[in-house]
Design a binder for these strands. Sequence first.
DNA 1: CTAAATACCTGATGGC
DNA 2: TGCCATCAGGTATTTA
Length: 270
Amino acid sequence: MPELPEVETTLRGISPYLLNKKIKAIKIRQPRLRWPVPDDIHAATDQKIVLLERRGKYIIAGSRVGSIIMHLGMSGSLRIADQPFEVRKHDHVLFELSHKKFMIYHDPRRFGSILWTRDPAEQYPLLADLGPEPLSDEFTGKYLFKKSRNKKVAIKNFVMNSHIVVGVGNIYASEALFRAGIRPGRAAGRVTAASFNLLATEIKSVLTAAIKSGGTTLRDFVNSAGEPGYFQQTLNVYGREGEPCNQCGENIKQRTIGQRSTFFCTNCQT
DNA sequence: CTAAATACCTGATGGC
DNA sequence: TGCCATCAGGTATTTA
């Protein structure tokens, strides 16, 4: 399930095949993703990708005439292949690239999206109101503290809100809160400034460490070469219900917060 | 305005 | 072995 580290891993993997390369053709087998793949994406045909970047969990591939905006949803992946026709089930979109390479968008659950805009990508409605990048200097404990005053929403939901900060999904939210010693169900408005400083630091460190490991593979995440990540070996709480806490030995608890499975240690997190 | 619930989708899993 | 129910989860959208 791609969160920021998995998207970053994907971006780095596709970059050598996409950046400063021409898209020779786009073939859409299944346009029904989260939103229909727009027909005018074919305007990207024969265009060179001159900019390739990540914004939150979106991948933006910019050309002179417009930008392709991709999101992997929760089961999406982009892989680079040598064959156009090694088509597996759920291979929905095929990008023909230079040098007989192909980029294939694969997404069993079709929660992802592939969009096209002629305007500057940052103006696209889905991107325009996003919060800061967690790995930027703009993202600090002070920022979180300011944004959270009088908010009753659980701190876990708060940091998973992309309008507050992008890229923190269900796995890394649980992990960062464990590292910062904060109970996930606590109201965001009742978290202290000092705790927010620690939380911002831990969000940065857990995401950075996960990128170094090539992301987390629990079920289906694979990078652009079809390989899994290894960060799951480093997880402290996620998916470890009933197992002993790495810090204190107490059993890890699971609870549903905001419709999402949440893991924490009742001893280490207050 | 906020907060919570819902919708989208398929595959894996567990119970019978 | 088959069938049904449940869960997984990113996030825009809808409802309260």
